[in-house]
């Protein structure tokens, strides 16, 4: 092979790669098992963009990776109480979704939220609650209480799981003890610690995978998310979702563009795209959570319109609370309790 052919080969290779670039790319960094493949396919076809989805398992994983840099992601989907942390660290681009065409579809309720006033950074992805799931065959009593895992009834001893989400579990336990989420009140926390320590021997495990394990009777109750419980119920009709009357945790995950994103324009297209009711419905149809876009209901599967996991019963509507961003001092207290719990 002489120099000329080498050069030609080089030029050809360059032409090929730059050709791929011209079509555009979008790298989404989202929670695992959370992104509808149909939605991605539709976006790819509509805008001729190659989308790559990478999974993470916690807000902290996402935060650490993005803060470290060199990640190559354009979009991240942090929870409400992490959005201010991302913003204050200067990790998000002020993409002004509130000025985008489809912003008019965002429900009034989600337009001006405490974690992103006026929605300058983020667009609703999905929202829901963290409560409890119970298998009726094991326990037929009232599931609408945190006592399911904090003071398990006889029938559930040794069969309850708790998800390893420190903030959610502490939030539920604090409300059960009569306090406010993110409290630093020692009296309340002492009660919380004692309740958790007394309950722990009655737990089966502290782990994820609740959808599958509730479906196949591997666990009879768990702290769980509403959409995950919904999916478990579709596979196992005995599973019910409980909204703890002492107070349950509400959350919303929002789509944001990362400051050092390489494909900002595509990311903005994606933001606008998911505020379209038909597309938002695809998000919900996959992960089974509500999405915060008006008019998306009519595009959703029928079973979602009546699902008690998605449509909060009126009597529990005011019992849910969004977790604020806890102070570092509160977090250190919670970590200490969390560590003692698993020692």
């Amino acid at each position: 092979m002489n120099v000329r052919t080498l050069l030609l080969a080089g030029v050809a290779a360059f032409a090929l790669t730059s050709g791929a670039n011209a079509e555009g790319e979008l790298n989404i960094y989202n929670w695992g098992n959370y992104t509808s493949p149909d939605l991605i396919k539709k976006f790819e076809e509509k805008y001729d963009v190659k989308v790559t989805v990478t999974d993470y398992d916690s807000n902290d994983t996402a935060l650490t990776k993005i803060e470290a840099g060199g990640h190559g992601f354009d979009i991240v989907v942090p929870s409400a109480n992490y959005v201010p942390i991302f913003v204050n660290k200067g990790l998000l681009l002020e993409a002004r979704p509130d000025e985008m065409e489809n912003f008019k579809n965002v429900s009034e309720r989600w337009r001006d939220v405490p974690w992103d006033p006026g929605r300058h950074y983020t667009v609703p992805w999905q929202w829901g609650s963290t409560g409890v799931a119970v298998n009726k065959t094991a326990y037929s009593g009232d599931p609408n209480t945190s006592a399911i895992f904090l003071d398990p009834p006889e029938e559930l001893v040794g069969k309850v799981n708790v998800v390893p989400e420190m903030n959610d579990v502490m939030g539920l336990a604090i409300m059960y003890a009569g306090g406010e989420p993110c409290t630093e009140d020692k009296e309340v926390l002492k009660k919380v610690r004692d309740t958790l320590m007394a309950a722990k021997p009655k737990w089966l495990s502290i782990g994820y995978g609740t959808t599958d394990k509730l479906s196949n009777n591997e666990m009879m109750a768990s702290v769980n998310w509403n959409g995950s419980t919904f999916r478990a119920r579709l596979a196992n009709p005995n599973v019910v979702y409980g909204y703890p009357k002492e107070g349950y945790v509400m959350w919303m995950d929002s789509v944001a563009i990362i400051k050092d994103a390489k494909n900002v324009e595509n990311a903005k297209l994606f933001m606008n795209f998911i505020m379209e009711p038909e597309n938002a419905a695809m998000i919900s149809a996959f992960a089974r959570y509500a999405n915060g876009i008006d008019g998306s209901e009519e595009f959703m599967p029928d079973d979602m319109k009546t699902a008690p996991e998605i449509n909060v019963p009126a009597e529990f509507a005011d019992k849910g609370q969004f977790l604020p961003t806890c102070s570092p001092a509160a977090r250190d207290l919670y970590t200490a309790i969390w560590t003692e719990l698993q020692k």
């Binding site: 916690s58 969390w338 698993q342």
Partner: peptide
Amino acid sequence: PRVLGGGRKMMIGNFIELQFGQGQN
């Protein structure tokens, strides 16, 4: 330990992960 131990009791590996993750220390 995380998958088979059920996560109720930590080992050092899990404890270190907690500090870099949710513990933020």
